[in-house]
Amino acid sequence: MGLIQRMVEAEGIPTISMGNAPDRMNHIKPPRALLVKFARGCMFGEPGNINRHRRIILDALDALKTMSEPGAVQELPYRWKKPDPEES
């Protein structure tokens, strides 16, 4: 996926991706990425947690506007089956 993202970005289309492994992301160097502490196979959190899925997409839309450095990675604060920090 890293190669796909990098090739698309190089073709003039802004991209953003999800990731959960900082080591691997360092290696792949995606142009823009959000880092979550969720396991493989559930980057947007728990099944049925509509608010969380939505929240992460909204975070990505914000990140598109604010990230200004190639290779920017933003860590998100969400934890599996725990409420979002602001709600706790």
Binding site: M1, G2, I4, Q5, V8, I13, P14, T15, I16, S17, M18, G19, P30, R40, G41, M43, F44, I57, A60, L64
Partner: peptide, 10 residues
């Protein structure tokens, strides 16, 4: 006409 691509690896 895609303006932004959102990629989600597993």
């Amino acid at each position: 006409g895609v303006d932004v691509l959102f990629l989600v690896p597993v």
